[in-house]
């Protein structure tokens, strides 16, 4: 039959193409990191044994990314998918995993690491409804700005890497131990430095600062978005303005990717300064890795401390 013959011919051509394409062998582990902070942590623990691809940069709102063709190509080669989880990447990660992910990076397998599974998540809602905006039933997913969380995640990461590349298990373990010791002394120093921030008030644009605020014992007085994911409107801003008028507010916290019109409006009407923090690795010129991210964040917060 005509159609069968034509189809068979096509299949043969396809097979030929498959055979002729060079198969590449990798000595290293390929890591697909959804966010810059996970990319940076993967480099700390994986060292020279990993090749890290960070799917997003600090200028992008990770929740709103599209499943781009280049992501499919990277996912195809990934040995470990290292993302936030808690539905933060739910708009694009499942499509990538389904279309291009190897069995070992599928949920439940060793190559599938969702950082938020290994920390105490905050703001877990009792009930969810879309009228509450873009809330996550798993809790607030923006977990990386409490440095204690990073140790827990790094610990799990080193174990996963060791399972994926057992001949380098010792190295991964050593890298984790080094990171751990160094990070603990950092945390200690940072906590000493920021005692003056305790109990200060701030306004935030979106609910992605809660872990930093918890850590530094800062109070969140208001959020510019009426509900998570809905851009601020003037009526809501006026309500916020009323609620902050008699309070001593340190600043309005913004990430580099959040539009600052609403923050500028509030700042103009209330004299509260807008504080743009790097939020993640690459968020400003000096925030080159995790350590400098925290250094920068604290420097900016303290620098604006009256």
């Amino acid at each position: 039959m005509n159609i069968h013959k034509r189809f068979l011919l096509f299949l043969i051509k396809l097979l030929l193409l498959l055979v002729l394409l060079p198969s590449s062998a990798f000595a290293q582990l390929n890591i697909f990191a959804c966010a810059p902070e996970w990319g940076a942590l993967a480099k700390e623990i994986g060292g020279t044994q990993v090749s890290v691809y960070a799917a997003s940069n600090a200028a992008q709102d990770i929740h709103h990314l599209r499943a781009r063709p280049s992501f499919l190509a990277k996912m195809r080669k990934a040995d470990l998918v290292f993302c936030t989880g808690a539905s933060l990447e739910s708009g694009w990660l499942p499509v990538l995993l389904q279309k291009a992910g190897d069995p070992k990076v599928q949920p439940g397998n060793v190559g599938h690491l969702m950082a938020s599974d290994y920390v105490m998540r905050l703001e877990i809602p009792e009930a969810v409804d879309r009228s509450m905006g873009d809330v996550h039933s798993e809790g607030n997913p923006h977990i990386h700005l409490n440095p204690h969380n990073l140790i827990l995640i790094a610990d799990e990461l080193s174990k996963r890497l060791a399972k994926l590349l057992p001949q380098q298990a010792k190295l991964f373990n050593k890298n984790f131990e080094d990171f751990h010791t160094h990070w603990l002394s950092n945390i200690d120093r940072w906590e000493q430095q920021t005692l003056s921030l305790n109990n200060k008030n701030v306004v935030v644009y979106h609910s992605n600062w809660i872990y930093l605020l918890e850590w530094l014992k800062l109070n969140r007085i208001a959020t510019l978005e009426p509900v998570p994911g809905i851009p601020p409107r003037i009526s809501h801003l006026e309500t916020v303005l009323n609620s902050v008028q008699d309070l001593n507010i340190k600043g309005i916290l913004l990430t580099p990717y959040q539009q600052n019109k609403a923050a500028a409006w509030l700042s103009k009407h209330s004299d509260i300064p807008v504080i743009e923090l790097p939020y993640t690795v690459g968020g400003n010129e000096k925030a080159k890795d995790l350590e400098s991210l925290f250094e920068e964040t604290l420097r900016i917060l303290l620098g604006t401390d009256a």
Partner: peptide, 30 residues
């Protein structure tokens, strides 16, 4: 025929810098 139609497709795509992406496809339905 048991199989009344067949399709084939090929796609390529990638990024141009950090902020743009493209995809090109060729397909047939017979």
């Amino acid at each position: 025929s048991n199989i009344g139609a067949w399709t084939a497709f090929g796609r390529i795509g990638g990024d141009v810098g950090d902020n743009s992406a493209w995809r090109l496809g060729l397909s047939t339905l017979q």
